[in-house]
Amino acid sequence: MKYLILIHSNPKSRAVWETMTDEQRMEFGRGHMRCTEDLAASGELVVSEGLPGPEASKWVTVRDGQTIATDRPFAEVKEYVAGFYLVECESIERAVDHAAKMPDAQYNEVEVRPVLDMSAWDL
């Protein structure tokens, strides 16, 4: 089954980041590289990516057949997805084990969410 490990950025995680030395920040990044390498070696990594902040995003709606893409206000956003790992493993417990190895789990919560398997849906 597939699970999405979501890395969130929020005031708490950003405050921790601001207190880190350059070396601690480098080690944090190396920790993510190790997680990616370990997941790839186990065959459980589907994909992993970091995401920029909400200021780089577009919000898309369709009204009366017209596509509207806006920058949307992001000043009030306190939390956003900063990155993710899509893994395929035998159980949510295994995905939780992987999430616990994320450097972010030492400072902030890391979310694990099952991916819906829609292959059996009769659409």
Rank of each mutant, 00 (worst) to 15 (best):
M1S: 15
M1P: 14
K2I: 00
K2T: 00
K2D: 10
Y3G: 02
Y3R: 05
Y3S: 03
I5W: 05
H8R: 10
H8E: 12
H8F: 04
S9N: 13
S9D: 15
P11E: 12
P11K: 03
K12M: 10
S13E: 09
S13L: 14
S13N: 08
S13T: 14
A15Q: 12
A15M: 04
A15Y: 01
A15G: 15
V16E: 11
W17V: 03
W17A: 09
T19Q: 12
M20R: 08
M20E: 00
M20V: 06
T21Q: 05
T21G: 10
T21M: 04
R25V: 11
R25T: 05
M26W: 09
E27I: 05
E27A: 15
E27K: 15
F28S: 13
F28I: 08
G31M: 12
G31D: 01
H32V: 01
M33K: 11
C35S: 12
T36Q: 09
E37W: 02
E37Q: 07
E37H: 01
D38S: 08
A40W: 09
A41G: 08
A41C: 06
G43Y: 13
G43H: 08
L45V: 13
V46T: 11
V46K: 02
E49P: 02
E49K: 14
L51W: 02
P52T: 09
P52Y: 00
G53R: 07
G53N: 13
E55M: 08
E55T: 14
E55G: 14
W59R: 15
W59K: 15
V60L: 15
V62E: 00
R63W: 07
R63Y: 00
D64P: 00
D64R: 09
D64W: 00
D64F: 09
D64N: 11
G65K: 07
T67V: 12
I68Q: 07
A69C: 08
A69G: 04
T70I: 11
T70K: 13
D71M: 02
D71P: 09
D71A: 03
D71L: 04
R72N: 13
P73D: 12
P73V: 07
A75W: 05
E76W: 02
E76N: 10
E76A: 11
K78I: 03
